[in-house]
């Protein structure tokens, strides 16, 4: 076999696209007194989350970068949160896997698509008034419409093209040599709001961005033009499924005000606020589905 090809080893360089990983546990609750402990694991293309739900309430989560394979990423995400609260895997009654790697979660009792999980998670985080959900993930973008129970009524998912995804934003952050968390705030630090970059394609937008820098645009202004293009693109996806009040944004890009504020402006609707990390919506939804399923199982066993 011709195996002399080595992966290009990354030189020591700053990784501008790298975002913050996090672990959180609700210290006011005690899982040991809970009747049902369930877990949702969302193995995305870029990030993986494990969420613990006790008796139908959010208890803790761990969000980290997806590694080379889905089973390890799922295991590591879960281990991170179990360590934090001194839990063992046998203490968990039901595990639901979701996301791009959902069928590769070795210890999952069931796999549910991220569309249904995001709707369920958003319904918990934003309340039953949530109708329109936008999930901007690492390698896809989903527009979901749901009812008051968090059941999906209309959805679309775009995973064909990097435009409008977190990956597209990472490309620009790397190109501009600006840490990804700073892109949003910087995009508002401009003299006048520029027009959106005209290219939808990330590859072409990259050359266009370089051209704009050459033409005298500041880095901030180029970032603003890119954020605007991204906002216009996701708004066109939302329009296909119909936008209704009760607008909730999940996924990593929800943390980028440069895109969020511009989407709100285009739609004329403010996104609902949440105290919980927007990236966990999918895993949270999965854990809540797990709670429903575990409750049914317990009820059936008791009967």
């Amino acid at each position: 076999m011709n195996a002399e090809v080595n992966a290009p080893t990354a030189p020591e360089k700053k990784e501008f696209w790298r975002w913050q990983e996090s672990v959180w546990v609700d210290e006011t609750k005690d899982w040991k007194t809970a009747k049902i402990v369930t877990c949702g694991i969302d193995v995305g293309s870029v990030s993986s989350q494990a969420v613990l739900v006790i008796d139908g309430e959010l208890y803790g989560f761990n969000s980290m970068r997806t590694g080379n394979n889905s089973p390890d990423s799922a295991t590591n995400a879960l281990a991170g949160i179990m360590d934090k609260c001194g839990m063992k895997q046998e203490d968990i009654h039901f595990v639901v896997g979701t996301g791009y790697g959902r069928v590769n979660v070795p210890f999952a009792d069931k796999a549910i698509t991220e569309i249904a999980c995001h709707a369920r998670g958003a319904n918990y985080m934003g309340g039953n008034g949530v109708r329109t959900i936008l999930d901007m993930g690492g390698q896809d973008c989903k527009a979901i419409h749901c009812d008051e129970k968090g059941k999906v009524t209309n959805f679309l998912m775009n995973d064909k093209c990097a435009a409008g995804t977190g990956r597209g934003m990472e490309v620009i952050s790397d190109l501009m040599q600006i840490p990804i968390a700073e892109l949003g705030p910087r995009s508002f630090d401009v003299d006048v709001e520029p027009e959106a970059v005209s290219s939808v394609c990330v590859v072409f937008a990259k050359s266009e961005a370089l051209g704009l820098l050459k033409a005298g645009y500041t880095k901030n202004k180029v970032i603003a033009a890119y954020c605007q293009a991204m906002a216009e693109r996701v708004v066109s996806l939302l329009e296909r499924i119909g936008v209704e009040e009760g607008f909730f944004i999940t996924g990593g890009i929800a943390k980028n005000p440069g895109v969020v504020k511009r989407i709100e402006k285009l739609l004329g609707i403010k996104a609902m606020e949440t105290k919980v990390d927007s990236q966990i919506a999918g895993a949270l939804g999965a854990a809540l589905f797990g709670y429903t399923l575990a409750s049914k199982k317990a009820a059936a066993a008791a009967a």
């Binding site: 076999m1 011709n2 195996a3 090809v5 992966a7 064909k160 093209c161 990097a162 990330v202």
Partner: peptide, 22 residues
């Protein structure tokens, strides 16, 4: 992958899986 940006990651995983360059 259809998209150039995503295909780059796919090519990298092919390299990792020791797929011949050709």
């Amino acid at each position: 992958a259809q998209c150039t940006v995503f295909a780059e990651s796919e090519v990298v995983s092919l390299i990792h899986a020791s797929t011949p360059k050709n």
